[in-house]
Design a protein around this nucleic acid. Structure first.
Length: 518
RNA sequence: GAGACGCUAGCUCAGUCGGUAGAGCAACUGCCUUUUAAGCAGUGGGUCCCGAGUUCAAUUCUCGGGCGUCUCACCA
């Protein structure tokens, strides 16, 4: 949309301009002007309110078509509302297609059936208008199930024309293709682009199914603060805000973890939250500044239990929304059937690169990093070097689901070390299609250890600005006594991408973050 | 953060080796009572993203800016 700033010699509003909310004016296109004139004619000449209050919707397109019975006499009469998507006018009779909640259905509008008054109204209608109609359902000569309307009610007049997308035999013509326009005008995209609404319905179904599974396991869904005086639970740059009355800085959360663990301490044995997290970092195909995480915590459980839950959530949800565990993504065939392979970080490195980091010296690790042009933030730390080598050399080769386990202890302060080798953690990350989908720990609950590691992590802020600051209240919660706990985080957007076949996170977010246009 | 590409009518796109632009759909007028990318005849519609420079002349060339898309690097 182009915005023009003009000054007018008189103070009157030029009739050819629309005032925008910010006081600027948009030059009005002829298309909008003509539709506003029709609006006036509908009100004044026909005496019809183009924006009435309700309509008695009794039927929906998909159900009418699915339930059609050709032998039924007399025909079934329906009452349906929707948006006009096509109009084919033939003098004293017309066909049009409306789109409702579930899909599209054709209407037949004949002068001698609906009468002169209604036909005059019909002739003033445009693609994009919302109407309510009643009438019997019949098949046309060419076999299309059609409502032969006997009653027409205008429910909302459109004055901003929609892109006209046509379809024949599954082929789409004049698609609303400009991705920028689609993201900025998602309401239009949802109306005119085939498949978009279905993608978001699938997203809704995925989240609903996750909740169903967790609720059945007696997890309690909770809500924790988005605005936090101290952020933590991940290594990331936060968004910063300011509370006027409290005269203090508040951060938008970067993870759900710190408050969910307080609830475990408080006696909720099983909690989860599905909510937005915010990270002030770059935007690309797989990253949006705000994104949705599932985090769950289960008392008296460890990372093995989290693996079982992860497998169940993903496999069952794939079956629920796709009817299959096999998915095709970017031309790759991925099989989500459980159980999934489990591989230690160090074994994965050995398997995919031949490097046996268990026997390599620090200097050898350093040399390997340099060879890949990979760099650590701050001083050399052996565990971080191993983790970095894994990220650079192995991650994107993990196409089939695999639990990568036992990361070096230096990668996070929030996880318990493993029983028999304290250099490694009881942690896993789930990789599918080269992307981290989930991350889980046997959560650290040793308060002395926790205070020490979080303090050490806060010191890393000197070399790594993404290291979170010390969270005293969180440590005190752990000092109160947290039961042994398994914790799991799943990137919802990435799961949705995987299960819908979308390759850009923006195509699974209704309203991706966009820069303002001017 | 780096590179490539794009921005022309409401939408999808042509085009101008520098002389202010076209098509299809949409719109408007007329015809048409079973069409379906309906059809036929006609009409209108554009600060060619913004700014500067070069030039008699810039939508086109050069530079700068804006916004976006894609790829690469980093964080989930």
């Amino acid at each position: 949309m182009m915005i023009f700033q003009r000054t007018w010699t008189n103070t009157g509003i030029h009739p050819g301009h629309i005032i925008l909310l910010d006081g600027q004016m948009e030059e009005e296109s002829a298309l909008i002007r003509i539709r506003k004139e029709k609006l006036k004619e509908i009100r004044e000449d026909l005496g019809i309110n183009p924006y009435p209050y309700t309509y008695d919707v009794c039927d929906y397109s998909a159900e009418i078509i699915a339930g059609f019975d050709e032998t039924r006499v007399p025909e079934r009469t329906v009452s349906i509302a929707g948006r006009i998507m096509t109009i084919r006018e033939m003098g004293k009779a017309s066909f049009c297609t409306i789109q409702d909640r579930d899909g599209r259905i054709q209407l037949y509008v004949a002068l001698n059936t609906i009468g002169e008054e209604s036909y005059r109204l019909f002739k003033k209608l445009d693609i994009g208008d919302i109407i309510g109609v009643k009438g019997p359902v019949k098949k046309t000569r060419t076999g299309e199930i059609t409502v032969f309307i006997t009653s027409l009610t205008l429910l909302a007049k459109n004055i901003r024309p929609l892109p006209v997308v046509k379809e024949k035999d599954g082929e789409v013509f004049d698609a609303f293709a400009d991705k920028e326009l689609r993201y900025r005008n998602r309401h239009v995209d949802l109306i005119v682009t085939p498949g978009v609404k279905e993608t978001f319905l699938k997203r809704i179904a995925i989240i609903r199914n996750f909740k169903k599974i967790l609720d059945a396991k007696n997890f309690n869904e909770v809500e924790t603060p988005v605005l936090q005086p101290v952020y933590g639970g991940a290594a990331a740059s936060p968004f910063t805000s300011w509370h006027n009355a409290l005269d203090m800085t508040l951060y938008l959360r970067i993870s759900l973890e710190p408050y969910l663990k307080r609830l475990i301490v408080g006696g909720f044995d099983r909690v989860y939250e599905i909510g937005k997290c915010f990270r002030n970092e770059g935007i690309d195909r797989t990253h949006n500044p705000e994104f949705t995480m599932l985090e769950l915590y289960q008392a008296y459980a460890d990372f093995n239990d989290m693996m079982a839950i992860t497998e169940e959530l993903i496999e069952q949800t794939a079956l629920a929304v796709n009817g299959s565990t096999a998915i095709s993504y970017e031309g790759k065939e991925i099989e989500l059937k459980t159980p999934w392979k489990r591989l230690r970080v160090t074994d994965a490195l050995k398997e995919y690169t031949g490097l046996d980091v268990m026997v390599m010296s620090d200097d050898e690790l350093r040399a390997e990093l340099e060879k890949r042009d990979a760099h650590l933030k701050g001083d050399f730390v052996r565990g971080l070097a191993i983790d970095e080598l894994f990220k650079v050399l192995v991650e994107d080769r993990l196409i089939q689901p695999v639990f990568i386990t036992h990361h070096p202890v230096e990668t996070t302060p929030l996880c318990k070390p493993d029983y028999d080798d304290e250099r490694f953690l009881q942690r896993f990350e789930l990789f599918i299609n080269g992307t981290e989908i989930a991350n889980a720990y046997s959560e650290s609950n040793d308060p002395v250890f926790q205070r020490k590691t979080l303090y050490e992590q806060s010191l890393r802020r000197a070399v790594d600005e993404e290291a979170p600051p010390m969270d005293e209240n969180f440590v005190q919660a752990i000092e109160t006594g947290m039961p042994p706990t398994g914790g799991l985080g799943i990137g919802i957007d990435r799961v949705v991408m995987l299960l819908t076949g979308e390759t850009s996170i923006r195509d699974v977010l209704l309203f991706p973050t966009m820069r303002p246009q001017d």
